[in-house]
Structures are given as C-alpha cells and as structure tokens.
C-alpha cells in the first residue's frame, strides 16, 4: 500500500534553491593559490578539455614512462643472474633515455600555463580576486613544477617501485627511503631549472608556439654556446654551467653519488650555484615581466 500524498508532505523540500547570498566562511589566499595551481595543472594535462589537448601530454608521458617500464619488464622477466637491472640503467643515468620527453614537456607546460591566461584575459580576472601578481605567479610556478615532476620524478618512482617488486630494488628500508629522497631531489632540480627557463620565455611572448620554440631552442643553443666557450675559446670549464643538459644532470649525478661517468669535473658547489643562477634568472625575468604587465584591457 502506498503512502498518501499527505503522509510525505512534512519531508518535502525544494531542491532548487536558486541564487542566494553566502554567509559562510570564505577561504583565504592560500586556497586561491591552490585552486589556481590545480587549474593550471588540469589545463596542462588537458583534463576537462577536448581530446586534442591531451595528445601532447600523453605522448610526453608515454615516452617518459615507457623507458622505466621496459627496464622494469627486463627485471621481471630476465633473472638477475643473467642481467642485473641496476647495471642496465641506474637511477642517475636513466634520465639520458627520457631527456627528449623532458625537453618536449618543458616546451609544452609553461606556455600552456602562462600565455593562455594572458591571451584569454584570464589574468585580469585572476587579479581581480584576492590573488596578487606575486601569489598568482607562485601558484603558476607550482603548476609548472608539479607538471614537470610528472616526467622528472614519475619515471624514477616507477623504476624504484618496479625494481622493488622485481626484487632488484634497494636493500633495506633506509636504502629504499634514501633512493626515494634522491629521486625526488633529482627530479626537483631538473623541474626547477627547466620550469624557470620555460616560464621566462612564456612571460616574454603571448604566443604559445613562440614560447615553446624559444624554450627548446634555449636548451639547445645553451649547449652549443657553452661548448664553444670551453672548447673553442678555451675558457674555463665553469662555462659548462651554461649547458642546460650538463648543469642540472651533473648535479643529479652528484645527488645519486654516481659521478664516475661525468664528462666534466665541476664541483658540487659550483653546480648548485650554476643551477641556482638559472632558476633565479628564469623566475626573475618572469616576475619582472609580470610586475609591469598591463593585465586589464
């Protein structure tokens, strides 16, 4: 027997509340920065956007993760007596296998995060909120760095977890945690340097393609310039710090303690200072540009 209409009358509610005032507590600037960072990350990865915007990030991630995936596969299917996975590729030198993915992703991320906001006028809307230019930029730096971490930290993590399950991982909990910390630190160094470079180019031009091309060209040209200065002009080896494939990756090798195969004998302190200089220069240019930028038209 069904209830009569009157029986449910007391529990009836109007679900469509319509527009109304909000009396609750509002979140602060930190929450605004977090939301902006997450939105930037979604934008880079094409989440909530058409399928075509997902293609490049997926390709980059695929390149970056296929390599450690193959190593893990070798560790699983080939006995360590026949082939020791840690001799095929160490945590430090496997970056050389995925450098193309990292460079490609670097050229993609910051232009997507920064130039899009300027072209669409979103920056004017962002700065009409509690965000300031500085807090906005910090949120964007976070988005770029986290996005780059996908290809700088993610593959190392996959390698560590894969090797661990294949019985070829670090021995003991402390070694395992040390390796984990090394992977995070190494990825953070590469992310910071490459994020700074790509953000500087993205701050200079409103054209995404120009920013991407500029970033990738900078990485390549810096290599040639440093080689010319050291080998052509016979200047100090310190000029190798201009080489964006040497400065961060040599520091990464030091983080893992695998310095035997390094081509140049650059002291750790100089490597740290060199990388720091790139980071300061890149973010400095970005900040300087944004402080002077007209954001509403």
């Amino acid at each position: 027997m069904t209830d009569s209409p009157d029986a449910n009358a007391g529990s009836a509610q109007i679900q469509d509340r319509g527009y109304r005032t909000f009396d609750g507590e509002r979140n602060g600037v930190a929450a605004a920065m977090w939301t902006t960072m997450v939105q930037g990350l979604r934008s880079v990865l094409g989440i909530g956007r058409p399928a075509k915007t997902k293609i490049l990030p997926v390709i980059c991630a695929a390149i970056a993760f296929v390599v450690p995936g193959v190593f893990v596969g070798l560790a699983v299917f080939i006995p360590s007596e026949i082939l020791d996975p840690n001799e095929v590729a160490t945590y430090a030198d496997f970056y050389s296998f995925i450098i193309a993915a990292i460079v490609l992703f670097t050229g993609l991320v910051a232009p997507e995060v920064l130039t899009g906001d300027r072209r669409t006028g979103m920056i004017g809307l962002y700065l009409s909120t509690p965000l300031t230019r500085t807090t906005y930029l910090i949120a964007k730096v976070g988005a770029v760095a986290v996005a780059l971490s996908i290809v700088t930290i993610g593959p190392g993590m996959l390698l560590l977890i894969g090797y661990t399950f294949a019985g070829a991982g670090p021995g003991g909990l402390m070694d395992w945690l040390t390796t984990l910390a090394q992977i995070v630190a190494a990825g953070a160094v590469i992310s910071a340097v490459y994020a700074a470079i790509s953000m500087a180019f993205s701050a200079i031009t409103d054209r995404r393609a120009f920013a991407s091309a500029g970033t990738i060209l900078c990485l390549l040209v810096a290599t040639s310039v440093s080689a010319s200065l050291v080998e052509g002009a016979d200047l100090s080896e310190n000029y190798h710090l201009l080489n964006l494939f040497v400065a961060p990756f040599d520091l990464v090798a030091h983080i893992y303690g695998e310095t035997d195969g390094l081509a140049y004998d650059l002291a750790v302190t100089r490597l740290i200072l060199g990388n720091l200089a790139w980071v300061v220069a890149g973010f400095g240019i970005t900040w300087w540009r944004y402080l002077r930028m007209e954001v509403t038209r």
Partner: peptide, 21 residues
C-alpha cells in the same frame, strides 16, 4: 575573449573558488 575550450560552468566554478568559496 575567454578560454575557448573551458565549459561555462567550470569557468564560473573555478573563479568562485579563487574568490574564496
């Protein structure tokens, strides 16, 4: 000029969150 491939709802929701909701 607004982000072309962003849904209207997503656009409004995101900015509301940035404004503290």
């Amino acid at each position: 000029i607004l982000p072309e491939d962003m849904q209207a709802y997503e656009f409004v929701r995101h900015l509301s969150q940035v404004r503290g909701l």
